[in-house]
């Protein structure tokens, strides 16, 4: 299960995707909307995705995990649209025969999402709004793209 959806995510449903007889460990990550960032109060967030590409990139992360940690399974669902404080923006479930791999694979998945999955977040504050990521041009890609090579 690798999806971009516009409705609340069921962490239970995502987790069930990776549970199986040889799994001895299941790790669940829930990325939630935080109220205070750098001293500023967020009212709500808005997420936008290039949906078909974002879904394909989540699937790619799943394949990378399966190659790096044999026996590991993963499932990722990211939500788009308006999200309120405390709501889940992303749920990542990973499982493997032993816990170390399940933890590592899970961490890997969120870092890869932040690197290269085409999803954007807009912060809405009381006194303004900004697409994060960012338009000040402080990030530049030497090769015109992020490192997307597998592994």
């Amino acid at each position: 299960m690798f999806e971009i959806i516009a409705s609340p995510i069921s962490a239970q449903e995502v987790t069930e995707q990776v549970m199986h007889r040889n799994a001895g460990a299941v790790v669940n990550f829930i990325g939630t909307v935080r109220e205070i960032t750098k001293g500023r109060k967020t009212l709500y967030l808005e997420y936008e995705a290039y949906v078909p590409m974002a879904k394909a990139k989540l699937e790619q992360i799943g394949r990378e995990i399966a190659e790096k940690w044999p026996g590991a399974k993963s499932a990722i669902v990211h939500r788009v649209g308006r999200l309120e404080i405390g709501e889940a923006a992303v749920v990542i479930a990973t499982s493997s025969p032993h816990r170390a791999d399940a933890y590592e694979a899970n961490r890997y998945a969120i870092e890869r999402i932040k690197e290269m999955v085409p999803i954007w977040k807009k912060e809405h504050w009381e006194d303004g709004e900004l697409w994060i990521g960012n338009q000040q041009g402080t990030i530049s890609y030497e090769n015109g793209k992020p490192e997307v090579n597998e592994g």
Partner: peptide, 28 residues
């Protein structure tokens, strides 16, 4: 991105291809 895959500067885009401008991402 060209047809939903990150492209290099030397890649050639053809009529009918779907191109996307991808600003730095901030998902998660």
């Amino acid at each position: 991105a060209v047809n939903e895959e990150f492209a290099d500067d030397e890649d050639v885009i053809q009529a009918g291809d779907t191109v996307a401008l991808i600003p730095p991402v901030s998902g998660g």
